Simulated assay, not measured.
Amino acid sequence: MTKGPSADPGVIDLLGLLAYAELGSFFRLADDAGLAPSLRGKGQLAALAAAEQAHYQTLRDRLEELGVVPEEAMEPFVAPLDAWHERTEAQSWLESLVKTYVGDGIAGDFYRKVAALADEETAALVEGVLAETGRAEFVSGAVRAAVAEDPRLAGRLSLWARRLVGEALSQAQHVAVARPRLAALLAEDPQGSAGATALGDLAAVSRMFASLTDRHKARLDAMGLSA
């Protein structure tokens, strides 16, 4: 297939990155559902996993509409996202829930900020894919209940959440620098060069990442954890 006239390279990168992220989220949530200690938890996580699969399909369909092979758009992001998950492998069900809430939350903030600088149709599509599906309420409630039952968990999970944020920001920076067309969106430069990322793009990337921690404290508070 060939790219359609509206298939801006930066937008294709954004959609490919998000599609692979949603696919990975589906598998992780499905695994978490199997480990949930209650039938209610299993059912809720299974429903969240199903929502992520639907989001992945929406993105895949959009890429095909743009004349892009979805797997080709996702391929550049397989290695960096897989590497992040390997470095942040959860050691318990609660750690996995915190990773889902904090890690996916930071990533979602990143995708929204990039999409807001793309065309309106892409921004609306990304916002719809990232719309909350009850995940935040379920995860924050489950972690809060566990911490209330065993307050000793709070410190360990808070440290885990801080590590996740640091790893997520570091990996996102690597992705943006490695994909100059994606970084160019942040600099609002649709004509960004296909070669090395411009200094202006790097400055925009750095400013954007610094702002991603704004909502981190709110997420920790929702889980009953401290910053």
Rank of each mutant, 00 (worst) to 15 (best):
17 L>C: 03
20 Y>A: 04
20 Y>H: 10
21 A>E: 08
21 A>F: 09
21 A>V: 08
22 E>I: 03
23 L>R: 12
24 G>T: 07
24 G>M: 13
26 F>Y: 13
28 R>T: 15
28 R>N: 15
30 A>V: 01
32 D>F: 14
32 D>Q: 14
33 A>T: 02
34 G>M: 10
35 L>N: 07
37 P>W: 03
38 S>M: 01
41 G>A: 02
42 K>E: 07
44 Q>G: 00
44 Q>H: 06
45 L>K: 05
46 A>M: 05
47 A>D: 14
48 L>K: 00
48 L>I: 00
50 A>W: 11
51 A>H: 13
52 E>D: 15
53 Q>H: 14
53 Q>I: 13
54 A>W: 05
54 A>V: 12
55 H>V: 10
55 H>E: 14
58 T>N: 10
58 T>Q: 13
59 L>M: 06
60 R>T: 04
60 R>G: 00
61 D>H: 03
61 D>C: 00
61 D>R: 04
61 D>M: 02
66 L>E: 01
67 G>F: 13
68 V>S: 11
68 V>N: 08
68 V>F: 09
70 P>K: 00
71 E>L: 13
73 A>S: 00
75 E>F: 04
75 E>V: 03
78 V>G: 06
78 V>M: 07
79 A>D: 05
80 P>I: 06
80 P>S: 10
80 P>F: 09
81 L>I: 09
81 L>P: 02
82 D>G: 13
83 A>C: 06
83 A>F: 04
86 E>I: 15
87 R>W: 11
88 T>F: 10
89 E>W: 15
90 A>C: 15
91 Q>P: 02
92 S>T: 11
93 W>I: 09
94 L>M: 12
94 L>S: 10
95 E>F: 14
95 E>W: 14
95 E>D: 15
95 E>L: 14
95 E>G: 15
96 S>M: 05
99 K>V: 01
101 Y>N: 03
104 D>H: 14
109 D>Y: 11
109 D>F: 11
110 F>C: 11
110 F>D: 09
111 Y>H: 13
112 R>M: 12
114 V>C: 02
116 A>C: 01
117 L>V: 06
120 E>I: 02
120 E>K: 09
124 A>S: 10
126 V>Q: 03
128 G>F: 10
129 V>T: 00
129 V>K: 01
130 L>W: 07
131 A>P: 00
132 E>F: 03
132 E>N: 09
133 T>C: 09
135 R>C: 04
135 R>I: 10
136 A>W: 04
139 V>A: 05
140 S>W: 05
141 G>A: 06
141 G>S: 07
142 A>N: 03
143 V>Y: 12
143 V>H: 12
144 R>S: 12
145 A>R: 14
146 A>C: 08
146 A>V: 09
146 A>G: 06
146 A>F: 08
151 P>S: 05
152 R>Q: 14
155 G>D: 12
156 R>G: 08
156 R>A: 13
156 R>E: 12
157 L>T: 08
157 L>P: 05
157 L>G: 07
158 S>K: 11
